[in-house]
Simulated assay, not measured.
Amino acid sequence: MKLVPLGDRVVLKQVEAEETTKSGIVLPGAAKEKPQQAEVIAVGPGTEEVKMEVAVGDKVIYSKYAGTEVKLGEDEYIVVKQNDILAIVK
Rank of each mutant, 00 (worst) to 15 (best):
75 D>Q: 14
26 V>G: 00
74 E>L: 11
46 G>T: 01
7 G>Q: 09
54 V>L: 10
35 P>L: 15
20 T>L: 08
24 G>D: 05
7 G>M: 07
70 V>Q: 09
47 T>Y: 06
47 T>M: 06
56 V>W: 05
23 S>V: 00
28 P>H: 06
40 V>H: 02
22 K>H: 00
63 S>R: 13
48 E>S: 08
4 V>Y: 08
17 A>Y: 01
3 L>I: 12
51 K>T: 13
39 E>A: 07
26 V>H: 02
38 A>F: 00
44 G>I: 02
17 A>K: 07
32 K>N: 01
68 T>E: 08
32 K>H: 00
35 P>C: 11
4 V>A: 06
11 V>W: 05
72 L>M: 12
27 L>N: 04
33 E>M: 10
36 Q>N: 14
44 G>H: 05
43 V>K: 10
64 K>W: 12
33 E>N: 12
60 V>G: 07
30 A>Y: 08
30 A>H: 09
61 I>Y: 14
59 K>S: 12
60 V>H: 10
17 A>D: 04
32 K>G: 01
21 T>S: 15
75 D>G: 07
64 K>E: 13
15 V>P: 00
54 V>D: 08
30 A>K: 09
69 E>D: 12
10 V>G: 08
39 E>F: 10
68 T>H: 03
45 P>N: 13
41 I>Y: 06
27 L>R: 07
47 T>W: 07
61 I>L: 15
61 I>S: 15
18 E>C: 03
7 G>D: 14
18 E>S: 09
60 V>E: 10
62 Y>E: 04
65 Y>I: 01
56 V>M: 08
43 V>H: 07
32 K>E: 00
20 T>P: 07
40 V>E: 01
52 M>C: 11
22 K>D: 09
29 G>Y: 02
6 L>V: 14
25 I>A: 03
26 V>T: 10
28 P>T: 03
15 V>D: 03
63 S>L: 14
57 G>L: 08
74 E>Q: 08
13 K>N: 05
33 E>C: 01
19 E>C: 05
69 E>N: 11
25 I>C: 00
28 P>A: 03
8 D>Q: 11
70 V>E: 13
4 V>M: 07
25 I>V: 13
18 E>A: 14
58 D>A: 10
10 V>W: 06
5 P>Y: 10
9 R>F: 06
71 K>W: 01
70 V>K: 09
49 E>R: 11
15 V>H: 06
12 L>P: 01
41 I>R: 09
15 V>Y: 05
52 M>F: 12
76 E>A: 13
22 K>G: 10
50 V>F: 05
70 V>M: 09
74 E>V: 04
71 K>V: 15
24 G>K: 07
42 A>M: 03
32 K>C: 00
25 I>Y: 11
10 V>R: 02
24 G>W: 02
55 A>L: 08
59 K>I: 11
66 A>I: 05
31 A>F: 06
74 E>G: 05
28 P>R: 02
32 K>M: 04
39 E>G: 12
29 G>H: 05
41 I>S: 02
5 P>R: 13
9 R>W: 04
25 I>N: 03
76 E>S: 15
35 P>E: 12
62 Y>W: 13
6 L>T: 11
30 A>R: 04
50 V>K: 10
16 E>G: 04
9 R>K: 14
68 T>C: 04
28 P>D: 11
72 L>A: 13
74 E>F: 08
31 A>Y: 02
